[in-house]
């Protein structure tokens, strides 16, 4: 079976700092891959390279076998790469629902031509997006907050909204950047459950996370990055047992 997301020999440097050094990895349907490593290892940079925020210097990235090299950020999202951000980047003047309604892979309302000549189709697409958004919020028990301004929500719930917005993109690939940082209690359990459901539904998920118990609970396999390179990869238990990695990670 071929991988959903396939990186091959990806290389990127900023001046003298190499943030991605010959990165090759694959994520398959239903897999949750953990991406771990110390701060500055290049984990978020790798997400930025995959989503097109920063172009790679070399290497190839394929989604379901189709190369996305040279594609813009929005084109990659439309090809089915959804992502969340460590600091959420929610639209702060908008409600929870509005944040999500602009987020499907195709948003009919961004075309002036369609707005003028097919207003009915745009309205139906909007209604459909609303329904989809409410269904996602319901899974997170957030549907009663749909009309609240995102900035009124506590941090943990904002983090969930960040995930909910990304899930509006029904593409095959989901990249989560530190979904658990600052999230506790009920929101923590919800986050875990939803990410697991998404993988079971067939998405290829990649999680950058410092919370090792979250990684242990969710991921079957992981890669360990440091200074832009993949040092080790494999089963999560084996990785955590590795002494050199523990030293690099925890500095002990």
């Amino acid at each position: 079976m071929s991988a959903v997301l396939h990186l091959e020999g990806v290389f990127k440097h900023f001046g003298g700092i190499v943030v991605a050094d010959d990165i090759t990895l694959e994520i398959e349907r239903g897999q949750i891959l953990g991406l771990i490593g110390p701060n500055g290892a290049g984990k978020t940079s790798l997400f930025n390279i995959v989503t097109g925020v920063v172009p790679a210097d070399a290497g190839d990235i394929r989604v379901n076998g189709v190369s996305i090299a040279g594609k813009g950020i929005h084109e990659r999202a439309r090809m089915g790469i959804a992502r969340t951000w460590q600091n959420m980047r929610l639209f702060r003047t908008m409600t929870v629902l509005e944040n999500m309604v602009v987020a499907p892979r195709e948003y009919a309302g961004e075309s002036m031509v369609r707005l003028c000549f097919r207003p009915g189709a745009v309205r139906r697409a909007d209604e459909q997006a609303c329904e989809q958004a409410l269904a996602i919020l319901e899974r997170m028990q957030l549907e009663r907050l749909a009309d609240n301004a995102v900035t009124d929500l506590p941090y943990g719930q904002q983090k969930l909204v960040g995930l909910a917005r990304a899930l509006m993109n029904d593409g095959p690939c989901l990249l989560l950047d530190e979904p658990m940082a600052g999230v506790e209690g009920h929101a923590y359990e919800t986050m875990k459950a939803v990410v697991r459901q998404e993988a079971q539904a067939g998405r290829a998920v990649c999680v950058v996370e410092h919370n090792i118990s979250f990684i242990k609970d969710l991921c079957t396999s992981a890669v360990f990055m440091s200074a832009g390179r993949i040092l080790e990869r494999g089963q999560i238990a084996d990785l955590l047992a590795s002494k050199t990695l523990a030293e690099l990670y925890f500095g002990t």
């Binding site: 925020v53 999202a77 992502r83 980047r89 908008m94 509005e98 948003y107 309302g109 961004e110 509006m168």
Partner: peptide, 22 residues
Amino acid sequence: GPYGRAISAMRDDELAFVALGR
């Protein structure tokens, strides 16, 4: 309308907006 909603989102955070496929 829907276009204005997109513009609001773009003004709030353009990178997040583009990364949604807009």
